[in-house]
Computed example of a mutant assay.
Amino acid sequence: MRELLYEILTSAGRRMNFEQTARLGNALGGLLWQALPGRRKLAVEAMVRHLGISKPEAGRLAKESFRHNARSFVEIMVTQRMDPRFLAEGVTFADPERVRFLAETKRPVIFATGHLGAWELQTGSLGAFEGKRKIVVVRRPKDQALHEVMMRLRTRPMVDVVPHRQAVMPVLRILRKGGMAAFLVDHNCTRDEAVFLPFLGQTAAVNLGPALLAVRARALVVPGFLVRAEDGRYVQHFDEPLDTASLEGERDEKVQATAEFYTRAVETYVRRYPEQWFWMHKRWKTRPPEEDGQPRA
């Protein structure tokens, strides 16, 4: 039954355009705001604590966050429509010179992004780098039927999509050929996957996987975020890269420095566009070992 429902939704989604997905996402976000009081409270309290703003302001921004994140969910339906024409007409690249540099470099590149803005559509933004092999690493949902549908929608020519538990060798193969890999680096993770770093004023578990692979492949690490603009267009930001080949110290020190680099980048964009981040998830749930036995905030 679920498989049939997913197929019906996918078929309907493929007929939508970007304006329709925006309207549907906004409506769905408003519905979720009303239907999920626990997540609503979590988002508001997190904004108050980590941004230092008033509760009324946090409530306003959190409601917008629900709409933005619902749009991201719906936008997976139109990812494959991010063709060269749409990139030319619907996306502004904040730094065209950096785009040209990344398109021309022979170095392996790792894009570090987060659950901010139109993160599902960033797979389409990678179309700006023609001729390069790309791989996108995603978290696998528990629902197998949903996983299969999402993999099919995310996959594009010259772009592979792989679950994070199976990512190491496929990512390294592509990076060693001068390709590109993309990771979401702002989700909570288990202690065995994490290094604990400051994030928005509180220690958070940060996934080491992207940093380990970047150091191993001697890759450039590029923070990248596809932000929604007020006029309905999108702005793709690619920040100054970190060259892991230039880092000094032992391997663990290089990995730590790389994880710190992309965590700071995510924080910068969250503070700049707080209404476009995924505040409703339990980002600070995993605590460092030294806090065992202490009361949880």
Rank of each mutant, 00 (worst) to 15 (best):
K142H: 12
P108K: 13
A70R: 03
T190Q: 14
V171W: 02
V48R: 10
K254P: 08
R67M: 11
Q294D: 08
V109S: 07
E230V: 13
L184M: 15
M151C: 01
Q20V: 12
M82G: 09
F66N: 13
R156Q: 15
D143L: 00
K55I: 08
V270E: 07
A194R: 07
L102V: 00
V235W: 06
R100G: 09
K132V: 07
D160N: 06
A118K: 00
H237I: 03
L42P: 00
R2W: 00
D231T: 06
I8T: 02
R264H: 15
T258N: 07
Q34P: 05
P223C: 04
A182P: 00
L175V: 03
K285F: 03
R264W: 15
V136Y: 06
R67C: 10
R2K: 13
Q20K: 11
D143K: 03
L126H: 04
F101P: 01
Q294S: 11
F183R: 07
P295W: 05
R39D: 08
V235C: 01
R67D: 01
Y234M: 14
Q122T: 13
M180N: 09
G232A: 04
M280F: 05
V266A: 07
E3T: 13
V44T: 02
A70Y: 01
V44W: 05
L61M: 15
D143W: 00
M158Y: 14
M169W: 14
R139I: 08
A22D: 15
D143V: 06
F278R: 00
G29P: 06
V171A: 08
L200H: 08
W119P: 02
E260N: 03
H237P: 03
S125D: 12
R81F: 08
P84M: 10
E97G: 11
V136M: 10
M158F: 14
L121V: 11
L5N: 00
G30C: 06
N207Y: 12
P141N: 04
L24E: 02
P37N: 12
Q256F: 13
T203Q: 05
S72L: 11
K132T: 04
F261K: 10
N207G: 11
M151D: 06
A94W: 08
M47K: 12
G224S: 15
A62I: 09
K63F: 12
G30P: 02
L175E: 11
T286D: 07
L200W: 01
A167W: 03
V195K: 05
R14H: 13
P37M: 12
I76F: 14
A46Y: 06
G25V: 02
L175C: 07
V227K: 10
V221M: 14
S246W: 03
A245D: 13
V222E: 04
F18E: 04
V235Y: 02
E290P: 10
T263F: 01
W284G: 01
R23M: 06
I76H: 11
I135A: 06
G117W: 11
R176L: 12
S125G: 15
G232P: 07
T258Q: 09
V270R: 10
M77D: 14
E75Q: 14
G114L: 05
V149E: 15
M280D: 00
Q202D: 14
R23C: 02
A118F: 03
R133W: 10
H187I: 12
F261Y: 15
G293C: 07
T92Y: 09
L197D: 00
